[in-house]
């Protein structure tokens, strides 16, 4: 059995620091940070923790429906592919700083890629 990237970067205990890194990049990036204006930071951090856990192969209860509902209002405000691209890029930078290899970052990006249509309210909900 191969170790998940989640376990490799330290599992649950390392997630808070990983979320801090990722969330800080998101809030500092002018391509996407306007979508985070006025949100409750603690709740947002909890959601990002669930997201990072899911894409790195940790224990999660991900459903496309959650992702779709959570982003519907943002899609109405103009969320599109360019923003998803930026988030996947920032996710890669975060993992690189945590010592994850380029190959593995590609695997994570592929998982993140799989929720793109749900995030952007495209196709059918699962």
């Amino acid at each position: 059995m191969s170790t998940s990237i989640y376990d490799q970067i330290g599992g649950a205990a390392a997630m808070d620091a990983a979320v801090d890194l990722f969330y800080r990049k998101v809030l500092s990036d002018d391509r996407v940070n306007e979508f985070f204006d006025g949100v409750d930071m603690e709740r947002q951090a909890a959601k990002q923790k669930a997201f990072l856990t899911m894409v790195t192969g940790g224990p999660n209860s991900y459903t496309g429906r959650n992702m779709r509902d959570a982003h519907a209002k943002l899609v109405a405000r103009g969320l599109d592919d360019s923003h998803v691209d930026a988030i996947i890029e920032l996710l890669g930078e975060t993992l690189k700083e945590l010592g994850v290899s380029d190959d593995q970052i590609k695997q994570v990006a592929a998982i993140a890629e799989s929720v793109r249509d749900d995030v952007l309210s495209r196709g059918k909900a699962d």
């Binding site: 808070d16 620091a17 801090d20 969330y23 800080r24 809030l27 951090a45």
Partner: peptide, 16 residues
């Protein structure tokens, strides 16, 4: 409070 929380976090203070 909310503005400073965000700016301090971006400046490197852990959210928790």
């Amino acid at each position: 409070v909310n503005g400073l929380r965000r700016r301090l976090f971006i400046a490197g203070v852990p959210l928790r």
